[in-house]
Amino acid sequence: MNTNYNHSFRLPAEWEPQSGVILIWPHEDTDWHPYLEEITEVYLQLADAITRYEALLITARDSEMVSSLLKERLTEEQIKRVTLFTCDNNDTWARDVAPISLISNKASEGGSQPLHLLDFCFNGWGEKFAAEKDNRINRQLYETGLLQGVLENHKDFVLEGGSIESDGRRTLFTTTSCLMAPHRNQPLTQEEIDKRMRLLFPNVERIVWLDHGQLAGDDTDGHIDTIVRIAPNDTLLYIGCDDEKDEHYEDFQLLEGQLKQLRTLEGRPYRLLRLPMPDAIYDDGERLPATHANFLIINGAVLVPTYNQPEKDKAALNTIQEAFPDRKVIGIDSRTIIRQHGSIHCLTMQLPQNG
């Protein structure tokens, strides 16, 4: 574990300026194999949307094949924004594999400051799935110079990017169900994990632990990015549930109650924007964790999962537009992605601008 915590660095909010986004490309030996063509099309749509606004770093087992696909889909100008790196992978969830980046507090004083790239242990969400190849990706990218900054080894601590949300200032959000789940960081207590994270993210003064809101079919034990997201101006977007017959109803009512009781560090209530609970989607009898909250914020746009549910998709897109009025809100059909129990935010990781 690194112990030289530099208090001039902070964990930014996702809507702050970015230098690029990371994607890990699917292949036939991942769990995407039964619908590889369909998920490849989703990845091409993501690549198209992202490269209209910023750079894209793709790791792929067969980078030549991916390059060929991209050249058929993207313009020459977009292709210039793509960097391909060849390496193997177990799966494709960049949000939980790629480094969590800290930026300098002193960037506004002039001069470029290197990112601090925190490389945590990813163990397949509590040893549910193989992850040894995924766990090596960051080091490989760094050693070839594709990750610009200082790579910090925190492999003694399990932390997934989807399990935390930052306001870019002094508050971090997470869920009790995930960070206290088995096979993560036992025997650490919640108090000890809280303290550890405030050391890792030195700008954070408090961690808000949410105790409710786990989606059926979620392999992650309740990642925050599936239920509650932070937006500018002390805004929280969250999933609500009004259907008393829905299995989520009671838990999400409790989540909403907890959010209404929260206050900012300045003592003000948060601005709450409610996203609809998508109608249940099943695959082979199993309910999938469909959620509009799993959106990706990039420079100038927000990429939002949709589920071919026109009324609810439109309501979610309009609500997210209200939270991000200066960005274009782009819906991307995510019915294939949720077949592997994640969505757009889970597949991606942004790299902030380094000063």
Rank of each mutant, 00 (worst) to 15 (best):
V204N: 00
V204Q: 05
E205G: 13
I207K: 04
V208T: 15
V208N: 15
V208F: 12
W209G: 01
W209H: 06
L210S: 01
L210R: 03
L210M: 11
G213R: 03
Q214G: 09
L215W: 00
L215A: 00
A216K: 09
G217F: 11
G217W: 14
G217M: 12
G217H: 10
D218K: 01
D221L: 04
G222E: 10
H223R: 06
H223Q: 09
H223M: 06
I224F: 00
D225L: 09
I227L: 10
V228R: 04
V228E: 13
V228H: 06
I230D: 00
P232Y: 10
P232G: 03
D234R: 08
D234A: 15
T235S: 07
T235D: 08
T235R: 06
L237F: 15
L237W: 10
Y238Q: 10
I239Q: 13
I239H: 05
G240P: 03
G240V: 08
C241L: 04
E244N: 03
E244H: 07
E244D: 09
K245T: 12
K245H: 13
K245Q: 15
D246K: 00
H248F: 10
E250A: 11
D251E: 15
F252H: 06
L254M: 13
L254F: 02
L254T: 04
L255E: 08
E256T: 08
G257K: 03
L259F: 13
L259A: 05
K260A: 11
K260F: 03
Q261E: 15
R263Y: 08
R263L: 11
T264K: 03
T264P: 14
T264F: 09
